[in-house]
Write a protein that binds this DNA or RNA. Structure first.
Length: 161
DNA sequence: GCCAACGTTGGC
DNA sequence: GCCAACGTTGGC
């Protein structure tokens, strides 16, 4: 299967792209996804080498903060089995897990945030799931075209010289 | 299987 | 903190 492109949301107060950059091996298990549609994307479609946009949600301002990549196959989310975890879910059993995750590794932090408001104004991003009214999915597929355009925008925002 | 009530997400 | 939109739960 060819490489796929994704957008993952995280509240920076909880876990930011800076936290990922500073993490051991710049890698983290993307735990805590508790939505079935998002779970299905992770469990059924994510592959090592997939590219990821790291989105800061519930922030001031919100926006795409950088880039990461998938570095593991999907596996059961251990936080669902952990009574101490805020993501504990008694419905998920080790012998039949409900929730899955992948490990992601930091690739870059954008020189400046791609703020949601400017993404909305970008004609070339029309159709991006993130921009759909009422869109709440924390794991979203992104088209190659949109992904590349977002990287281009990130680069273009670097001041010359 | 319907759907009201409730809980969560996330922009603002 | 507000609240619209959405997802889940649970009574029936």
């Amino acid at each position: 299967m060819p490489q796929s492109f994704w957008l993952l949301k995280s509240e920076p107060d909880v876990f930011s792209i800076r936290d990922l950059e500073l993490a051991p091996k710049q890698t983290t298990p993307w735990e805590g996804v508790r939505n079935y549609q998002a779970r299905n994307f992770i469990r059924d479609q994510m592959q090592v080498g997939d590219r990821v946009l790291f989105y800061h949600s519930n922030a001031a301002p919100s926006g795409v903060a950088g880039e990461a990549e998938v570095v593991s196959r999907p596996y059961p989310d251990p936080s669902a089995f952990d009574r101490q975890s805020p993501y504990f879910d008694p419905k998920s059993k080790p012998e039949q897990p409900t929730w899955y995750l992948v490990d992601v590794r930091w690739r870059q932090t954008f020189p400046s945030l791609l703020v949601l408001e400017m993404l909305k104004a970008e004609e070339k991003l029309a159709g991006l799931e993130l921009l759909r009214r009422g869109s709440r999915l924390s794991v979203q597929p992104v088209s190659r075209i949109h992904f590349q355009h977002l990287l281009k925008m990130a680069k273009a925002k670097v001041a010359p010289g």
